[in-house]
């Protein structure tokens, strides 16, 4: 069968093609949501694991400070002479509170996305939890730093041989703090940053789909 094809035929064929192949929903939203669910579920598991490691490290520091305090404790004295030990115990207490809050956040996170509530709510809940855990860590870190500064500054002002020596000590201390804070931020970004971003993007995707 010979047929003369013109642009009209092409346009008609294209119209049919568009309506049959492209305008019908070629992608089922349920399937897309399922794909987001499995990807986000893995992200949440991974974030939870990283948070567990973080909390475990904090608990390890608590034991370390307690151990240092006990080893340095001079039982011949009560308070005077044991300032360092008491300081380490206070530090351990602050770390213990911080670690406990981190642990609570860890327990609050889901093991993937299997619960009854909606996928979007689930994602939002887990994102909020991990973000608040990181805020808690930052606040507790700053608190610990303030305490550390208060303790050492008061000691250095009495111990320092000259104002110059005091300034050098403070300068070194500040520099180390800045470097440590930078490293902590970098590690958080590496461990949590991209996964939190993916969670946020999945939340937008789901909101758009709904």
């Amino acid at each position: 069968m010979n047929k003369n094809y013109s642009e009209i035929d092409l346009k008609n064929a294209w119209k049919d093609l568009s309506s049959k192949r492209f305008e019908n929903k070629i992608l089922e939203k349920e399937e897309i949501m399922e794909a987001i669910k499995s990807k986000s579920g893995l992200n949440i598991i991974s974030l939870k694991k990283s948070l567990k490691i973080k909390a475990s490290f904090c608990f390890a520091f608590v034991f370390l400070f307690i151990l240092i305090a006990l080893l340095n404790f001079d039982y011949n004295y009560k308070f005077t002479g044991n300032e360092d030990s008491y300081f380490h115990l206070l530090f351990a207490f602050i770390y213990a509170v911080g670690s406990f809050i981190l642990y609570k956040r860890y327990k609050k996170m889901d093991d993937g996305l299997y619960s009854e509530s909606s996928l979007l709510d689930n994602l939002k809940h887990n994102k909020a939890t991990i973000k608040s855990a990181l805020v808690v860590e930052r606040i507790w870190g700053i608190l610990a730093m303030i305490l550390l500064y208060a303790f050492y500054f008061s000691r250095w002002t009495t111990e320092a041989s000259s104002p110059k020596a005091l300034i050098i000590r403070i300068g070194i201390f500040f520099s180390i703090t800045v470097v440590l804070m930078y490293i902590a931020e970098l590690m958080n970004k590496k461990k949590f940053g991209s996964k939190i971003k993916e969670l946020e993007e999945d939340i937008i995707r789901l909101e758009l789909l709904e």
């Binding site: 568009s18 192949r21 305008e23 070629i26 399937e31 897309i32 794909a35 993007e201 995707r205 758009l208």
Partner: peptide, 26 residues
Amino acid sequence: AIIHKVIGLYVDVEEDKRDLYQEVLL
């Protein structure tokens, strides 16, 4: 339909179509 059309013209794997649809929306 524009998104479906562009994806439909260039990608054949269903899983990739789903990923791309989300990606274009995002």
